[in-house]
């Protein structure tokens, strides 16, 4: 069977600066795999390892960064057998719908996929919608908030972690599920896996190889720095004097 794990490459938010026109400047940022996407990759890597004859494919869509070889190796060292990336400048700031449409088309073009998984939400936008939209566009059984995922007799058994309850469901394949950030802890790839990753196949597709335009439906009017509260930032050592001052600071407020 084929399983696809989707992931998004996101900038380190500590390195983002903002341009005058109200859009962020990401040129100086280091990029990483979305923190919660790593949990999704791990969850299905564990399923794939238990399954005979299971092909695990990592899939992403984005701008030029998707070709970054260090990031490609990083994803491939975590269990996937191959990776597919759809590359287009538009996809860097596209809305969830545009990205979902691209991912759904890419899944169709891979062909014969039984399960697509997503992280809970991306590290930068965190709208938690790409999984839901992709599943809906594929016309597959679609669920989010999945906190446990098992493949039993060709069917998924999932637990969903909701605000006031947990529920258990059986889901027929093909299915698209978004998993929670605490479904499992992502592995630390070994040196051996990182070396092996360099030899695994990776494919970069252009948007025009797929049947979609990558155009957002919801327009981003602006994305500007939020103003921050001014703080005193007095920092002291934890000696007797420092602790006295700390206690005084707290007493002032009660």
């Amino acid at each position: 069977m084929k399983i696809v794990a989707c992931y998004k490459l996101v900038p380190d938010e500590n390195q983002i600066s903002f341009k005058q026109q109200g859009m962020p400047d990401l040129s100086a940022c280091e990029w990483q795999i979305g923190q919660y996407d790593l949990c999704a990759i791990e969850a299905v890597a564990r399923i794939a390892e238990k399954q005979d004859d299971c092909q695990l494919i990592a899939l992403t869509a984005g701008a030029d960064i998707v070709e970054n070889s260090k990031l490609k190796k990083s994803v491939l060292s975590r269990g996937p057998h191959e990776m597919v990336a759809v590359k287009d400048e538009k996809l860097g700031f596209a809305d969830s719908y545009a990205v979902a449409k691209v991912l759904a088309e890419a899944v169709e073009s891979i062909g014969d996929v039984s399960l697509v998984v997503f992280g809970e939400g991306s590290g930068d936008v965190y709208a938690q919608q790409v999984g839901n939209l992709t599943g809906a566009l594929l016309g597959w059984n679609t669920l989010n908030a999945v906190s446990s995922l098992e493949l039993v007799d060709g069917e998924l058994v999932v637990e969903r972690n909701l605000e006031d309850c947990t529920e258990t469901l059986k889901v027929a394949l093909p299915a698209a599920v978004s998993v929670t950030s605490n479904i499992c802890l992502p592995r630390l790839a070994s040196m051996k896996e990182i070396l092996k990753a360099g030899k695994k196949p990776s494919t970069i597709k252009a948007l025009d190889e797929l049947n979609t335009d990558g155009v957002s439906r919801v327009e981003t009017v602006s994305l500007a720095a939020k103003s921050k509260a001014q703080r005193d930032c007095t920092v002291v050592a934890a000696d007797d004097e420092g602790l006295e001052r700390l206690a005084a600071e707290i007493r002032k407020m009660i």
């Binding site: 939209l133 679609t142 989010n144 909701l162 919801v218």
Partner: peptide, 23 residues
Amino acid sequence: QSRNGRLLAGLIAAAFGTSVQTD
């Protein structure tokens, strides 16, 4: 804006060919 709400919002938006404005 609950987990079920987010799921339904995504499915509804896909049917209208659009994205969800969340949070």
